[in-house]
């Protein structure tokens, strides 16, 4: 550990200056922005902008869809990657081949595979063929509410790998004897996963959970890939609203919408941190 404070400056300053310039300072300045009317005099209007934005139907729709989609994406990403990692961890060393294949999509541009998705989920495509073969009815996957499934699957396809890697790193630190004992006691796979494994890797699991949410809020990407720039209403996300307002040069509304969302995001993460703290104290 270095103690001479002066020496830190050349390493710290470029990054710190950039963060202050592009993130911290304008973030604070933007608060003022969201409280003024954007006219030539830029009069102070209090919470008028917030009132307008919150009452706007498209903002409500975008916020609702973004929250709903994240609520589907984040927990399923967390759960699937957890169960997959437990399974992979149990079949070492053969698991490493599967692990590497799960990681591959994380580095792939999902933009380039979206066309395959459009083919798979076409009305006459392989997914519907399979459904009909199993005795079901064809589904209109590429419009309306149903479009959410391909969007969520593309999200999972892309993001599964990184979560699995983080989980696996944590799982490898758990001694095998614990499982042997649990098996002797007759604990099932599911019981072992949720009652032995999960409590032991709370910190890593928490990180995965948080990262799942952070990524889920960026679901606009997948929506844009499959649904295009002007998606049907069930997929109109907050980002669509903000891009629209940005295009109309309505910066007041963009700022206000962003800050409203920031409050929600921080409230959510605050709650998660609080719950994690309590969970961890409960364990020790």
């Amino acid at each position: 550990m270095y103690r001479k404070k002066r020496l830190v400056l050349p390493f710290l300053l470029p990054g710190l200056a950039g963060i202050l310039l592009f993130y911290a300072a304008p973030f604070l300045g933007g608060i003022w922005y969201s409280l003024t009317d954007g006219s030539f005099e830029n009069a102070f209007v209090g919470f008028q902008n917030y009132q307008n934005v919150w009452q706007n139907r498209m903002f409500q729709l975008g916020l609702k869809n973004t929250m709903e989609l994240s609520l589907i994406c984040a927990p399923s990403l967390f759960l699937i990657s957890f169960l997959l990692s437990v399974a992979l961890n149990r079949m070492r060393p053969a698991g490493s081949f599967f692990r590497n294949s799960v990681l591959l999509p994380y580095l792939m541009p999902s933009s380039a595979v979206l066309m395959i998705w459009l083919l798979w989920f076409d009305y006459g495509g392989p997914v519907n063929r399979m459904i009909v073969a199993l005795g079901g009815e064809r589904v209109f996957w590429l419009q309306g509410m149903e479009l959410r499934l391909p969007v969520v699957l593309l999200f999972l396809w892309k993001n599964l790998g990184f979560c699995v890697i983080i989980f696996l790193a944590a799982l490898q630190a758990i001694p095998d004897s614990l499982y042997e004992y649990a098996t002797l006691e007759g604990a099932s796979f599911g019981k072992q996963a949720f009652h032995i494994t999960l409590p032991l890797i709370v910190p890593s699991a928490f990180l995965v959970f948080i990262l799942s949410w952070v990524n889920a809020f960026r679901i606009f990407k997948e929506v844009y890939f499959i649904g295009g720039a002007y998606p049907d209403e069930p997929l109109y996300t907050l980002q669509n609203y903000m891009n629209n307002m940005y295009g109309k040069l309505n910066y007041q509304n963009v700022t206000t919408a962003a800050y409203s969302f920031a409050v929600i995001v921080f409230a959510l993460f605050g709650l998660l941190f609080f719950l994690q703290n309590r969970a961890q104290r409960g364990l020790t």
């Binding site: 963060i19 993130y23 911290a24 300072a25 973030f27 809020f217 980002q239 940005y246 920031a262």
Partner: peptide, 24 residues
């Protein structure tokens, strides 16, 4: 404090951070 600020930034989605970026 700086590290805490970086973690907060990390949690914010693009919809939020695009505003300070655009202003600058």
């Amino acid at each position: 404090a700086i590290f805490f600020g970086i973690i907060l930034l990390m949690l914010l989605p693009f919809q939020v951070t695009m505003v300070p970026n655009v202003l600058t």
